[in-house]
Design a protein around this nucleic acid. Structure first.
Length: 953
RNA sequence: GCGGGGGUCGCAUAGCCUGGCCAAUUGCGCCGGACUUAAGAUCCGGUCCUUAGUGGUACGAGGGUUCGAAUCCCUCCCCCCGCACCA
């Protein structure tokens, strides 16, 4: 039977049996697992599949641990990408249309994709089909899409935001964004032709007061105002004169429009030549000294404000610029400035930067041997080094007024605040580098007013959230470090947008709630989604949601909304039954936003008992060690993979790809051979079911112990979501033991064989449910395998396994020796077990060992030599030295444990003489070294406990 | 730069937290054998070097702690993820 047929057969049966439709109640413990819904601008791909498979495996595993499991799923449509893509289709943009064509969409269909609604219909439908074929154990009744296209969800989000506002988790403010002036929109990283990663950077724009105008200069280091000596300007450049508020400012020609975007009223009055400003004096902020305007070459009228304040003590550029002028009277004359006055200017020490001293810029310029201000390479480096060093180590000196004694980092904020309060400066933003939008325009910084923020920066809220994190289980536990860091670092999050799909802000419908903010507590919505689907829109009110999820009174809600109170109570109970969720499975990239946001919002919206119980994070799927990407041609959709390989093969390969935080690796070679492996298992079950002998064999117990041990380990691994480990144990390692078992007993015991078949079938069911189900039916077992118990077992103690290990080891050693000796067909094999005194020696050593496992040689020899038979004294001393002291004291507790029990090696080996003779096809005998004579004697000296000497000829 | 996770015998993976049955798991690949007209599949054996056995070298590089280090500590090199208004 081909795997596809098997898969659809069982999928149909599961659906008919409503195997995954979860209802609250019953005696079982509940388990609620979920994963982030996918964004619906394309088909599900390998990356999605990995995370969803993990959730699915957990769901199946927990079900097999006798729990009532809920695993729901939904689809995300909020935000700009769908709208933007639809817009591009509308405009007939070629790359967008080509992309859709590559997805296999017809031309007529693509035309429909100019409407966002079409995306939100088409892709979720396909995703459901794909996931069903993938064998996902999802309760589809509870599915939904986000945004105002789905009224119940829309209303749910409105309730959330009203409640957040009431709880003062939402605050209002302004916010700098990267802005495309051409398109009039915010430009995220993926909307850029160049300049990815560049962001708005906050500067302090210093104002220098003149007679009837101001010069403005942007600085990153406002604390250095105390060291200002002059003002730099581009003598060759042209500047703009503009009215800003009630003042007249002189600045670069680019700047008025930037200021305007940043919320200032600006009117350009005319222009000023840089040359005309040189030699003039302006009053510097904070220090209120008159400073002269001087020309420089590093100043560029097209960058920033085109004007720079000069702090030669701490800025290499400024220092070098000053030195250059002071070195050239001629240069000064040509600009018409007073050379004598320029010569008097000296760096003013303002901060102690530790090992770089109090005048770091001059020192550094001299040290690096900078020629002049055109020596850009060296100057840039000096600037970089100095900036970081001062920020991290600098402490302000006495000369720096009210901030003296403060570290630079603190002083910077204080100075900035004071200057702004005194109207001697404003806060101003520049991009960290040039950004070009996809609409070919140079981007600028815009200040968005009236922006709403989720106050993730709030200390109290963060504290509560940290508490929530503490109570959570994380998989793998290593991920906790990252979470702890993120909670510290998260700042207020701008949570509304001017454009895109989504839910309108309840109190201001000019704003749409942003996509990361409308997906923080929706796991709660799953619990009742199917009940709210057909409710009239006018009943979807805050009252309703508050009575289901919050502290609302159900009777009052019932009267107000004309919904039977029993219904509301049912819904409320269902929420209380499933919530909180036990586990959310996600990619590790969501730690720093979505998962943390979700935690914050849970603490804001729900009582402590409803806070999430677990997060599992995983890496990003690689394909044969490479990142998956469309351009590399290794981009696979879930659909094509399932079509090409079958669901179980994809599941098996993905499960084998990796676990933990590391990036899982999809191996094509594994995928190619996985189908065969699974088929072999089915065949194996078919051939072996009902077989086996009825009587018992000494090795049976050993294999039972191994099976139990394997089951125990597999359960432990699965509890930690390590399904690869668990599958390897059951599907790859246990069969290795089984092989050995067969080799030893010839025919397996019937009961054991059945347990073996059943155990592996149940054990692999979370990973490859279809094949497992088929195998289960071949075993003539009752019910679905997906509802059976996952294999249970217990850890077996070493003592129990030791005998079989001895045989295995001896077999391997014998083979190795034959190999080395190049004996193809031995005529005789004698296994010589170690004499009793050697055992006693090893045990004595164990007894004498101190806490760290150390044994003193003379002590051991002294106490033990008398017990050694006379004829063995010499050998005995050697043995003690070589074996006991070399190995025993240096080996750990487990090793010592092994030798504690005196086992009868001879009996064990004798019981397997038949086994050995069959393998080597020659007579095999076992003797104790004490009885070794003539030709066997020399060899017998090599015998050691659990390591018999082996004589071959 | 900052924060997090990593680097293991051709490739991929386990082991590391809690040091000692660790020349180190498992899958793939490769080599040899059986079966077969042949191929595939399957099964068996091998896959660091050396040796009628217990040796050497080796877990990114270099130091350190220890009787003992893949495992603990330090330094360096390299790879991945994230650094925000974006799903």
């Amino acid at each position: 039977m081909n795997p596809k047929a098997i898969e659809s057969k069982w999928q149909k049966k599961w659906t008919e049996a409503k195997a995954y439709e979860s209802e609250p109640g019953g005696d079982k413990e509940k388990y609620f697992v979920n994963c982030p819904y996918p964004y619906m601008n394309g088909y599900l791909h390998l990356g999605h599949a990995f995370t969803y498979l993990r959730a699915d495996m957990v769901s199946r595993y927990q079900r097999m641990q006798n729990k009532n499991v809920l695993f729901p799923f939904a689809f995300h449509c909020t935000g700009t990408p769908i709208v933007a893509a639809a817009q591009r289709v509308e405009e007939g943009e070629k790359t967008q249309i080509k992309a859709l064509k590559q997805m296999g969409l017809s031309d007529t269909l693509i035309k429909k994709f100019s409407k966002p609604e079409e995306w939100t219909k088409h892709f979720p439908d396909k995703a459901i089909t794909d996931l069903k074929k993938f064998g996902a154990s999802i309760d589809w009744r509870r599915s939904f899409i986000t945004t105002s296209l789905n009224p119940p969800y829309d209303a749910f989000i409105r309730w959330q935001f009203n409640k957040l506002l009431a709880g003062e988790y939402l605050i209002k403010g302004s916010f700098p964004v990267v802005w495309c002036p051409k398109r009039g929109t915010v430009v995220g990283d993926h909307d850029r032709l160049s300049g990815e990663g560049e962001t708005p950077q906050e500067y302090t724009l210093l104002k220098f007061k003149g007679d009837d105008d101001y010069l403005v200069a942007a600085t990153l280091r406002p604390e250095t105002v105390f060291g200002q000596t002059n003002i730099w300007i581009d003598g060759e450049g042209t500047y703009a004169k503009a009215k800003v508020g009630n003042e007249t400012w002189i600045m670069s020609e680019e700047m008025p429009s930037k200021l305007e975007l940043q919320g200032h009223e600006v009117e350009v009055l005319g222009s000023v030549e840089g040359r005309d400003l040189i030699g003039k004096k302006y009053q510097a902020p904070e220090i209120h000294k008159e400073l002269m305007v001087l020309p420089s070459k590093f100043c560029d009228a097209s960058i920033g404000s085109g004007i720079v304040t000069s702090v030669p003590s701490d800025s290499p550029d400024d220092y070098q610029g000053l030195i250059d002028l002071q070195n050239s009277e001629k240069e000064c004359k040509s600009w018409g400035i007073d050379f004598a006055e320029v010569s008097k200017l000296e760096p003013i020490a303002i901060l102690d930067s530790g090992e770089m001293g109090t005048l770091p810029a001059p020192d550094l310029c001299k040290k690096l041997g900078i020629k002049d201000q055109t020596d850009r390479g060296k100057l840039e480096k000096a600037k970089q080094d100095l900036y970081l060093h001062s920020f991290n180590n600098g402490v302000m000196l006495e000369s720096s007024g009210f901030i003296s004694g403060k570290p630079v980092a603190e002083a910077r904020e204080m100075v900035k605040t004071k200057l702004v309060e005194n109207s001697e400066a404003i806060v101003y933003y520049e991009l960290t580098g040039p950004v070009k939008s996809r609409w070919m325009a140079d981007c600028k910084v815009k200040i968005v007013d009236n922006q709403w923020f989720l106050a993730y920066g709030d200390e109290k809220w963060t504290e509560t959230t940290e508490l929530a994190l503490k109570s959570m289980e994380l998989y793998p536990s290593k991920a906790r470090n990252q979470f702890e860091y993120v909670l510290q670092w998260l700042n207020n999050w701008a949570c509304v947008r001017e454009k895109g799909l989504g839910t309108k802000l309840p109190w201001d419908d000019n704003w749409v709630i942003e996509s990361l903010s409308d997906s923080t507590i929706y796991m709660a919505f799953y619990t009742v989604a199917h009940h709210l689907k057909d409710l009239d829109e006018d009943k979807l009110t805050d009252t309703l949601f508050e009575s289901i999820f919050g502290s609302g009174n159900t009777k009052e809600a019932s009267e107000e909304l004309k919904i039977p109170q029993a219904d509301i109570l049912d819904w409320r109970n269902e929420f209380n039954y499933w919530y909180p969720y036990d586990l959310r499975v996600s990619g590790k990239d969501l730690i720093q936003n979505h998962l943390s946001f979700s935690l914050y919002n849970h603490t804001a919206m729900f009582e402590k008992e409803m806070w999430p119980k677990g997060f599992a994070v995983n890496g990003w799927v690689l394909v044969d060690g490479e990142k998956m990407s469309k351009s590399k041609g290794n981009f696979f959709t879930l659909k094509e993979l399932v079509t090409n390989y079958s669901a179980d093969v994809v599941r098996f390969t993905l499960c084998n790809a990796g676990e933990g935080l590391d990036d899982p690796n999809w191996e094509l070679s594994f995928a190619e051979t996985a189908g065969k492996k699974l088929e072999n298992w089915l065949n194996f079950v078919k051939e072996n079911r009902g077989k086996g002998r009825r009587d018992s064999h000494p090795v049976d117990d050993w294999f039972r112990a191994i099976m139990s041990d394997t089951a125990y380990k597999a359960t432990k691994a699965s509890d930690r979501l390590k399904f690869r480990t668990s599958t390897r144990l059951l599907f790859f390692e246990l069969p290795q033991y089984y092989k050995w078992y067969l080799q030893r007993v010839g025919e397996p015991n019937a009961e054991i064989l059945h347990e073996y078949l059943s155990m592996i079938t149940r054990g692999i069911a979370p990973v490859v449910p279809h094949i497992a189900e088929e195998a289960w039916s071949l075993l003539d077992e009752e019910g679905f395998v997906i509802n059976q118990q996952f294999p249970k077992g217990k850890e077996s103690d070493i003592g129990f396994l030791i005998g079989e290990d001895l045989i295995k080891q001896t077999l391997e050693d014998t083979k190795a020796i034959l190999n080395i000796a190049k004996i193809e067909k031995p005529s005789e094999i004698v296994l010589i077990t170690s004499p009793k005194w050697k055992w006693e020696a090893v045990q004595a050593a164990g007894d004498l060992a101190d806490g760290r496992g150390q044994v003193k040689l003379n002590q051991l020899i002294g106490s033990f030599m008398p017990q050694i038979p006379n004829d063995s004294k010499k050998v005995g001393a050697e043995f003690l030295k070589k074996w006991v002291l070399k190995d025993i004291p240096s080996l750990g507790p487990e090793w010592q444990e092994r030798y504690k029990v005196l086992i009868d090696e001879k009996a064990i080996l004798e019981s397997s003489i038949d086994f050995f003779s069959k393998i080597f096809d020659c007579p095999v005998s076992v003797i104790n070294a004490e009885n070794a004579v003539s030709r066997l004697e020399p060899k017998s000296k090599q015998s050691a406990p659990l390591r018999p000497a082996i004589f071959v000829s």
